[in-house]
Simulated scan of single mutants.
Amino acid sequence: MALTVSHVVGGYSQIPVLKDISFDVRDGELVGLIGLNGAGKSTTINHIIGLLTPHKGKITLNGVTIAQDSQAYKQQIAYIPETPVLYQELTLREHLEMTMMAYDLDQDQAWVTAKQLLKTFRLANKLDWFPANFSKGMKQKVMIVCAFLTQAKLYIIDEPFLGLDPLAVNDLLNLIEERKKQGASILMSTHVLDTAQRYCDRFVLLHSGQVEAEGTLNDLRQALPKAGESLSDIYLSMTEVDRA
């Protein structure tokens, strides 16, 4: 078991956004974190990566909590945020070198991986570019390359398809499949539901800070029999609850 979120209550103030949520992400699987805006997806991610501390409950990654060993916990995670976060004064090459140092990677082997990723995402000739030279989609590709350079145990990907061209989306999905086969665990938040339905092994449906349903698409259909057959139908049924 890679990630276990157990009875977590938390948020940005004393009034909790998350209300006793529990789910897991197992080795070698892609779990889709699905929910309306304000359902608690970003808050959940921020608790997992350590930006927020739960009011109650526990988050463990391969048996380690952030309180027990912050470095060992965080070095298992690679995070791709919805909005790219790059250092304006660093080139692409320097971003990669900083990632290698942060994760204590073997430089020679890391550069082999980096060159493969740079070629895949068509960034190989841009190593000396600064972020100001990149489009939004290219910045997103830089974040993807830095994350998948790490060989992390858990990848957390927040709305990864925004700003990516169709070729880059396909490249990312292939990369996710490759890392799954190597045993990595992936938690992905997305509103691109048709893609999530095709590629995710399981889903966690958040609604108003609670886990509405969890499991495979068939599990969701059984848990919410009136919602519909597709992931999109199930998602839209939650909007109808909010409008009622």
Rank of each mutant, 00 (worst) to 15 (best):
A2S: 14
L3K: 06
T4N: 14
H7I: 10
V8G: 04
V9L: 03
Y12R: 04
Y12C: 06
I15S: 13
P16M: 11
L18V: 03
K19T: 04
D20Y: 05
I21H: 08
D27A: 12
G28S: 06
N37L: 03
G40K: 07
T43G: 02
T43W: 09
T43R: 01
H47P: 12
I48E: 08
I49T: 02
I49W: 05
L51N: 13
L52C: 02
P54I: 00
K56I: 07
T60R: 06
L61D: 00
T65R: 06
T65S: 09
T65G: 07
D69L: 10
Q75L: 11
Q76H: 12
I80E: 04
L90K: 00
T91I: 06
L92G: 03
L92D: 05
R93H: 14
H95T: 03
M101I: 09
L105M: 14
Q109W: 06
A110V: 02
W111Q: 02
T113R: 15
Q116A: 07
L117N: 00
L118Q: 04
T120E: 13
F121Q: 00
L123W: 00
L123E: 11
A124W: 00
A124T: 06
D128H: 13
P131G: 02
A132G: 09
N133P: 01
N133D: 13
K139Y: 01
K139S: 12
I144L: 02
I144A: 01
C146E: 01
A147I: 06
T150R: 13
Q151M: 06
A152H: 10
Y155N: 08
I156D: 05
D158S: 04
P160K: 04
F161E: 12
L175V: 07
I186S: 06
I186R: 02
M188C: 11
L193G: 03
D194Q: 13
L206Q: 08
V211L: 02
N218T: 15
L220W: 00
R221Y: 03
L236F: 14
V241A: 14
V241D: 12
A244C: 12
